[in-house]
């Protein structure tokens, strides 16, 4: 049994059908989906080491089962550009988290590579008539406002990816708009074909979202992943 199957078995074994962020990331990594870099640290010193390994700017997040709403508890700090900013962010976070949730057990911190660029969405859904479908479009928090997304039946071909791209009304944004990095067709083909393959091989995947996926100079990078099983 391959590693992806193992993760799905575990999730199902626990009576769940929604994968955690970490599990979803792991599956995506195994499927060859490029993700932003991420590391886990126990304390400030380790945070600094990991942040330097990843390279600034980074995002700092608290890891604690007790804290469900991280942002409200002050457990997420973005745009950290140096060791000293990281130290300051860490101290502020400890203070707000403990006052928001006294006695919370803090398991550690996650340091995440902060990437910027145009946000796209890549996803998958299961249609009652046509089965597995893949989606690509303009991403971010306004996806459901603009609905600028194109769908295709899985499996897809390279030609399908080109047609999907041409269906996006806001594609001008992806062509190097105002000096922002442009989307490379080869990167998009590789990512969408990987997702198509993943879902073909694992039809128990009901829905997934990679939103947003950032269009960066180095290519596409997914910074959030969510997988739901049948």
């Amino acid at each position: 049994m391959n590693e992806i199957n193992k993760i799905f078995e575990e999730v199902k074994g626990q009576g769940r059908n929604v994968l955690t962020y970490e599990e979803s990331r792991k599956v995506m990594e195994l499927a060859g989906v490029p993700l932003n870099k991420i590391a886990v640290a126990k304390d400030l010193d380790e945070c600094i080491v990991k942040a330097n390994e990843i390279g600034y700017p980074v995002v700092l997040k608290v890891i604690s089962e007790d804290i469900i709403h991280k942002t409200e508890a002050g457990g997420v700090k973005v745009g950290i550009k140096s060791d000293s900013e990281l130290k300051k962010a860490y101290e502020e976070m400890m203070e707000s988290v403990t006052s928001y949730h006294p006695g919370a057990k803090i398991e550690g911190f996650s340091i995440e590579e902060m990437v910027s660029g145009v946000e796209v969405l890549i996803g998958q859904t299961t249609d009652p008539q046509f089965g597995k479908m893949i989606a690509f479009g303009i991403g971010g928090i306004f996806v459901e406002v603009y609905k600028d997304v194109s769908f295709r039946l899985i499996p897809i071909s390279e030609n399908d990816v080109e047609e999907m791209y041409r269906e996006i009304k806001g594609r001008k944004m992806l062509e190097g708009f105002r000096g922002m990095p442009a989307l490379k067709m080869d990167d998009l083909k590789s990512l969408l074909l990987n997702i198509s393959k993943l879902v073909e091989d694992h039809p128990e995947i009901k829905e997934m979202d990679l939103n947003p996926v950032m269009v960066t100079e180095e290519g596409l990078k997914a910074i959030d992943a969510r997988i739901i099983l049948e």
Binding site: V18, Q124, T125, Q129, A135, E144, K147, E163, E207, D209
Partner: peptide, 21 residues
């Protein structure tokens, strides 16, 4: 639907997609 993609697919005609594809 519990995902973004799923909720958009409800508005979208999968049949049209299939015909085009």
């Amino acid at each position: 639907a519990s995902s973004h993609t799923g909720s958009m697919a409800t508005d979208y005609s999968s049949l049209k997609t299939a015909v085009k594809q």
